[in-house]
Amino acid sequence: MRGVAGRRARTAVTAVAGVLLAVAVWELYKWVGADDGTSVLGVRVLPRADDAAMPHVLDVLRRFGEPELAGGAELDQGQVVGLVVLRACLFTLRAVAVGFGVGALVGLLLAVAMQRFRVVERGLLPYVVLSQTVPLIALAPAIAGWGGRLSLGSYPWQPWMSVATIAAYLAFFPVAVGMLRGLQSPPPVAEELMHSYAAGWWHTLVKLRLPASTPYLFPALRLAGAAAVVGAVVGEISTGTRGGIGRLVIEYSREATADPAKVYTAMLGAALLGLVVAGAVGIAELASNRRRAT
């Protein structure tokens, strides 16, 4: 227990130190960098360090507590920016959670099918990889258009469902590939032992392959969570879905010249959303490890 507590403490200290280091590098470059950036042979290799491009970190944090004036929905005007960003993150979190769950389930089922049937792996895996080469900016409007013609029984298709579909599209890939590798990881001697017990494919899957795939599953879920957040943000931007953090990034970017710190509040909100998803996966991994230990 002391070793586990020590590792958690070191992880927390490392995370805090990483954030402080990033802030220090940001402020140091703003102090020593040129306002117009650094160019080599007419090509800018370092960004501009003026207040319009790189506001002080303290100014960005202070902006969270100041009132909304122009951007966002009309009902948000007068509220503090931090609350507006939080509400946008919660709106996007719904699409992220649904997309992450659906994508993880689809990826798991594909991995099981590819492990069970070698012909499925040979025929399907190249297309699984190829699916991730389709640009989202072209795929998102198509999904939004298809969704406008669908309904779940008497419940009409909602714009956030298109965003969740895009998130699932990105999330299924790391789970499918990672779980396939995990399901194929047991050594031949372990499989022979299961055969000696006359265990069928299902019992071998439950008792051997799934437990052996746990070290591969949670890293894949972390990647899937990050991909779901990216898919949701890009999906909101591409489909014009209002209310989420992706749309807020676009709305705040229009005020970049007059209020540059405000743009970074939406960006930090999107980053916070990714940390929430990664934290949820980490809690699930911790619970799984405790269950295996008992």
Rank of each mutant, 00 (worst) to 15 (best):
R2K: 10
A5G: 03
R10I: 08
A12R: 10
V13Y: 06
V19N: 04
L20H: 06
L21C: 11
A22Y: 10
A22D: 06
V25K: 09
E27K: 07
V32W: 04
G33L: 12
D35C: 02
R44G: 06
L46R: 09
P47T: 12
A49T: 07
D50K: 01
D51K: 09
A53M: 13
P55R: 08
V57R: 06
V60K: 06
L61M: 14
F64D: 06
E66Q: 13
E68W: 04
E74N: 09
L75W: 10
G78P: 09
V80T: 14
L86I: 08
R87K: 13
F91W: 15
T92H: 05
A97P: 01
G99S: 01
F100A: 07
F100Y: 14
G101W: 12
V102Q: 02
V102F: 04
G107C: 03
L109Q: 00
V112C: 01
M114C: 06
M114N: 01
R116T: 02
R116P: 00
F117C: 04
F117R: 03
V120S: 03
R122K: 11
G123Q: 01
L125Q: 05
P126W: 00
V134M: 02
L136D: 02
L139S: 03
A144S: 10
G145V: 07
W146R: 07
G147R: 07
G153H: 06
G153V: 13
S154T: 08
W157D: 00
W157C: 05
P159L: 10
V163H: 02
I166H: 08
L170Y: 09
G178C: 05
G178V: 02
R181M: 09
Q184M: 11
P186L: 05
Y197A: 11
A199V: 03
A199K: 06
L208W: 10
T214F: 08
P215M: 00
Y216E: 07
F218G: 08
F218I: 07
A220I: 03
A224M: 03
A226N: 13
I237A: 09
G243F: 05
G244V: 01
I245L: 00
R247Y: 15
V249T: 14
I250H: 08
E251K: 02
A256Q: 15
T257A: 14
A258D: 12
P260A: 05
M267W: 08
L268N: 04
A270Y: 09
A270G: 07
L272M: 15
L273W: 04
L273V: 07
G282A: 13
N289M: 14
R290M: 05
